[in-house]
């Protein structure tokens, strides 16, 4: 158990390292010159000497590999440089906006868990019945709906038409409802299907037949016999579906003008603010990799088979 966790940590760190290299490499390939952008954002047209000096100050005259190592060393001490646009330290910007994205994702994940477990289990219990088809229909639609359109339709109905919510103050507690729903609905569709598929596969096993023969009720079988056994697999699937969640925050935050990391990234792209984009991408990769690591560890804790085989 401990050994497999240690191995996973090493693997995780290696992947993060590779991802950081890829991120830096992409910046290096990019056509823009950070020194030029720095002055451009301040409305100054610098002379060549000043540009040259700024490049030196930014370390742009050094060879690629040195630049990378320097940048990486800074990153490990949580120093992500300064924003080319505002001159503010990137770490501060991220700190300010992280809480909002965290709140949004947390609510969305909560909603997702409640609904997808409820719907997934209900669909298995009512297999082949009307309820099952309704749930299938819903999850199918939820998978296919473009999230950006869903968000705009929610705004159109609940803000423009019914005036139930306001868009103006994202910090108000009720403002999280619509963005979180937009984020959660496609995830609910996907996860409901996965839960249903995993549980209905288990329902054909012999121990289920045995439980039925002993006279257990269907819902007791699903909740107490089948569910504990499949939780490990579901944890892994959840980790993977977080890719959708993290990507979704960008779109949802843009639609709802939510002051989180995603909208920060899009603003930075418009202004070619490279340090911010780099830091954003790296943070998202670290979060995604860590979530999957935690999901794997939880899966091992839940499933003795995985524990003994070292997670292979």
């Amino acid at each position: 158990m401990l050994r497999s966790i240690l191995r996973k940590i090493v693997e995780m760190l290696l992947v993060m390292l590779a991802a950081s290299f890829l991120t830096f490499f992409l910046t290096w390939l990019s056509p823009g010159d950070p020194a030029e952008i720095y002055f451009e954002c301040r409305g100054i047209s610098p002379s060549n000497e000043i540009l040259e000096e700024m490049r030196k100050k930014m370390g742009l005259d050094q060879p690629f590999i040195l630049q990378y190592l320097h940048w990486l060393a800074d990153m490990t001490t949580l120093d992500a440089g300064i924003s080319l646009r505002t001159g503010e330290p990137v770490a501060d910007m991220i700190q300010r906006r992280f809480a909002m994205t965290f709140k949004l994702s947390l609510v969305a994940i909560g909603v997702m868990f409640v609904f997808s477990f409820f719907l997934g289990i209900l669909a298995t219990l009512k297999a082949g019945r009307f309820t099952d088809y309704i749930i299938r229909f819903f999850s199918f639609a939820a998978i296919s709906v473009p999230d950006f359109w869903l968000g705009l339709m929610l705004i159109l109905s609940f803000i423009v038409t019914f005036h139930w919510f306001k868009l103006t103050d994202p910090y108000a507690p009720e403002s999280v409802v619509l963005p979180a729903l937009t984020l959660a609905i496609p995830l609910i569709g996907r996860y409901t299907r996965q839960i249903q598929a995993v549980i209905s596969e288990e329902m054909t096993r012999e121990y289920v037949v045995g439980a039925r023969a002993r006279g257990c009720r269907e819902w007791t079988i699903v909740l107490f016999h089948v569910l504990p056994g499949v939780l490990a697999g579901l944890a892994t699937l959840f980790g993977l579906s977080c890719a959708l969640l993290l990507g979704g925050t960008v779109i949802v935050e843009t639609i709802f003008s939510w002051p989180g990391l995603g909208s920060m990234a899009i603003e930075s792209i418009t202004h070619r603010d490279y340090p911010v984009i780099q830091a954003y991408v790296l943070i998202m990769v670290c979060i995604y990799v860590s979530i999957n690591f935690i999901a794997d560890v939880i899966a091992e804790l839940l499933d003795p088979r995985l524990r003994l085989s070292g997670g292979q």
């Binding site: 993060m16 992409l26 890719a243 959708l244 990507g247 991408v281 998202m284 995604y288 990799v289």
Partner: peptide, 11 residues
Amino acid sequence: AFPDLIFAIAV
């Protein structure tokens, strides 16, 4: 290791 959309945003 990159979530799909995040990688696209990076590139």
